[in-house]
Design a binder for these strands. Sequence first.
DNA 1: TCACTGTATCGCCATATAGCGATTTAGCAA
DNA 2: TTGCTAAATCGCTATATGGCGATACAGTGA
Lengths: 116, 116
Amino acid sequence: MVSETTKLLSPLALGLIASRFKAFSEPMRLRLLNLLMQGEHTVGQLVEASGSGQANVSKHLALLRDTGMIGMRKEGLTTVCYIADPIVNELCTMMCSRLREEMEGKAAALAFDPKI
Amino acid sequence: MVSETTKLLSPLALGLIASRFKAFSEPMRLRLLNLLMQGEHTVGQLVEASGSGQANVSKHLALLRDTGMIGMRKEGLTTVCYIADPIVNELCTMMCSRLREEMEGKAAALAFDPKI
DNA sequence: TCACTGTATCGCCATATAGCGATTTAGCAA
DNA sequence: TTGCTAAATCGCTATATGGCGATACAGTGA
């Protein structure tokens, strides 16, 4: 018998989910998202703050836009980027706290206590 | 001024987070995780249920193990796999419901109502 | 010991993509 | 129109990785 709370996902669903998570699977994209979590930035500001090339940033931003993670609006010459899906903050927060717990656990396991 | 609730992540943290999300960024790995969410499976069962080759499944499982998502224990000739990090269920649930909302929103936007 | 089975690993190929420089496009100003 | 700037796109290379067949390894039983 299969659990009531989970079910097998279709190949279509698996592909959709994978493409979303793929948006988060690159350090540079995470950096861009992290910057945008501080507030709106123009593409140029993201280029400077990220330390990457303009072409790369533009490509990463296009992917983040296509997966619905961010939004972009033109303002004259510049393009302003912003977080468009609240799941960005949720996922990052969840993963960060999980990693922190894990690291603290490992650190505790490595702690040397002469009393033991 | 920067928000109190977010902060800029270090390159090290970005890499760790990215590698975790990468585990979820492949349809085949998601399928394996989805199968394991139903309960423990041996490698052989996963090979059969996933419809992929034995070598590929083994490689994907190794990655999932190395990122801490699953655990494996040897039982005689077979290797039993199981979800090791509760974040697997949380992330999948969150992403699935988010995608469902999104699709329902798009479907509603496309709905044709002759009264309007 | 030998044979069999389940898994892991290796070698290879094809594809995907991150990064880079160069070019193009779009909007503003003179 | 021309010139300037911000951003997108193109072409390319190098790397990473998914999939596959073949092989190696490990555990079991005879």
